[in-house]
Design a protein around this nucleic acid. Structure first.
Lengths: 356, 356
DNA sequence: TGTTAACACGAAAACGTTTTCGCTGAGAAT
DNA sequence: ATTCTCAGCGAAAACGTTTTCGTGTTAACA
């Protein structure tokens, strides 16, 4: 086993100084051609590559981005990561991933671990618990230490930073409009509790779209599901939706704020003898595997997760690039926080078999 | 904006030496209680945290693990990451993620980027292109530089390292046995091309199980699908499976080597007027979202991705821990490569609605 | 012949730690 | 009065880079 070779070893071996080796390898014209040749040949032979850690220490930048998300086994989040990684790699950055697991404390611990020199900036989506507590001091603390943050999807006004979000409101509007257009008269909404901003926005979009279409927003047609009913409580979820559909037998259209609710609604509806899309049409949110491969396949509002990731990465890296210019000062000087960018990614309806 | 504080600044501020600060913070008894108190208070006030990069350089270990996988938007791989992250975090490590995107060159580039000091060891799954080329020099090169590797799922005999694999062969056997037990007489196999080892092993398991059950392995009942028919060529996939099922109208059981093939088979079968599970029963491989939420839900062979990740992380970190003891020498000394561990994670059949 | 300019290279600082070793002064022991 | 011990602290090296500033040699010039 040969440990990685260092400048010092090359220098000793070739009987020159460390500086000479360093300069020769960067093709400095300070060094004669002979020496340069010799050194480069030797370095190549021993496959010399500069040590990233040493470089990071010297340059005070690590060329890596910290991603902090609530959950990785999740189609949307993993597509975002893919987008981030794509851009990051292209622009010479690595990504280091932390999982908050929807926990406030894990979010903080992870941030602190990474903020101590390991990364140059964060791209993150806030955990549910943090949103519930509405405690964002760790974000602001990190930012005020000079580490830029880009938030995506689950963002919050209380933190001043660049943001990339999906147009949840308009996505919902589009979905409801589509259902109206397809002749639905009684459109139900299956959503989550309000504290997750995206759920709230989608609900608002639903209500607004109904209003615009001069339809009444019947609160009986809105089913708010407790988030704890996740993957592990499928039966409860089905039961709840079943009750809901039974009671409201006139429902002919369903807009669900995520894939799972949508396919479950389809499943239950069929169980109740209603056919999709003839008796009831369904539109979901998030274009994941479920939407594509369900039978019938699901018409859905696509969020373009990868694009979100790409945008976020570009925003962050741009910030990092301009960091030398001390951009932070003018932020403090003038109070207008408009210096931060908020990118809105448009949604798109992908029509499949669950609508006519 | 206050940049992170360093030992040097604390030292200057308190008019002591850097060494004194360092010692005081680590509660060295070399330092008087007075000074220790003063320094610790000051450090706490300014929220001092040692710089990870400096520590990495000094200790020559980064306390981070590099994960290199072919694809992240993939239920199996993301569960593995979750498992790795869980253990890594618990044992004081971070994870940095690289994506090969199934490409040989991206795999190499990523490895080289990370191997130059950024990480202490790799956990990886080989890209398809690398498996095709059968070129594994980069793995061996990395290992011989003293960087341990743990491979999972897609592993290969040509590289000597710890490995964590799924018992693909027995998983397939179990699946076929289950179908036999459920009274299937004509069991089909939908699989991939052979160069991905897991596909090959599952195919072998299928054949072996048939043999044991004294059934003939009819090659007409085996459909090998070109891998290029992925998410983007759904229609082609459906078409191919449709042809297959039409020709072999006597099929009453299907074992598919992944979720997608399984649900697609169900979809096509129903389109052809055969009902699931009455006319044909289906078992898939990989317990992902599709299996859980398809209608009917899919009986499947679970791989326990998270457990794989946890095992891999533990193996790697164990290796890293014992590194000081120069374990590498005795590996070279005696040729038996049995010093590397191969963990086999047992599969488990999860029965759902697609079987009787 | 003495001055200068270019060339080729080395020494050293800096990034932020930890740790070994040495130094100083005060009190105890002789 | 002299030596010893020890507590309390600082200097310096080390990890692997890059970069600034010197410095010595040689060739060209006045």
């Amino acid at each position: 086993m040969k440990r990685k070779i260092t400048l010092k070893q090359i220098a000793r071996e070739l009987d020159v100084s460390i500086s000479t080796v360093s300069k020769a390898l960067s093709n400095s014209k300070e060094i004669s051609e002979d020496t340069t040749q010799k050194i480069q040949a030797f370095a190549k032979l021993y496959n010399y590559k500069p040590n990233n850690i040493a470089l990071s220490l010297k340059n005070r930048k690590t060329k890596t981005i910290g991603i902090l998300i609530p959950e990785i086994v999740h189609h949307f989040f993993s597509t975002v990561i893919r987008g981030i990684e794509l851009i990051a790699n292209r622009r010479g950055y690595n990504v280091i991933v932390g999982l908050s697991n929807e926990s406030f404390t894990k979010e903080i611990i992870n941030m602190e671990m990474l903020a101590n020199g390991s990364i140059d900036g964060f791209i993150l989506s806030i955990s549910k618990e943090t949103l519930l507590k509405q405690d964002y001091h760790h974000f602001n603390a990190t930012i005020s230490q000079g580490m830029p943050i880009v938030m995506f999807d689950r963002v919050v006004n209380e933190v001043d930073c660049d943001k990339v979000i999906v147009d949840d409101f308009n996505g919902a509007v589009k979905a409801v409009n589509k259902l109206v257009e397809k002749n639905c008269k009684h459109i139900a909404l299956i959503t989550t509790m309000d504290y997750v901003s995206v759920g709230r926005l989608r609900t608002q979009g639903y209500i607004e779209a109904l209003k615009v279409n001069k339809m009444i927003a019947d609160s009986n047609l809105i089913l708010k599901i407790d988030d704890s009913l996740d993957e592990n409580h499928l039966e409860d979820l089905e039961l709840e939706i079943e009750q809901f559909l039974k009671i409201n037998s006139d429902i002919d259209g369903v807009f669900a704020v995520n894939e799972l609710y949508a396919v479950t609604a389809m499943k239950v509806a069929r169980k109740l003898g209603r056919s999709i899309p003839d008796d009831v049409q369904v539109i979901g949110f998030t274009d994941g595997v479920l939407s594509k491969h369900a039978t019938p396949s699901l018409t859905t509002v696509s969020q373009h997760g990868q694009k979100i990731g790409e945008q976020a990465a570009n925003l962050l890296i741009d910030r990092l690039g301009s960091e030398d210019t001390e951009y932070d000062e003018y932020i403090i000087d003038n109070d207008r926080k408009t210096d931060f960018i908020k990118v809105v990614i448009e949604t798109e309806i992908i029509e499949r078999e669950s609508t006519k």
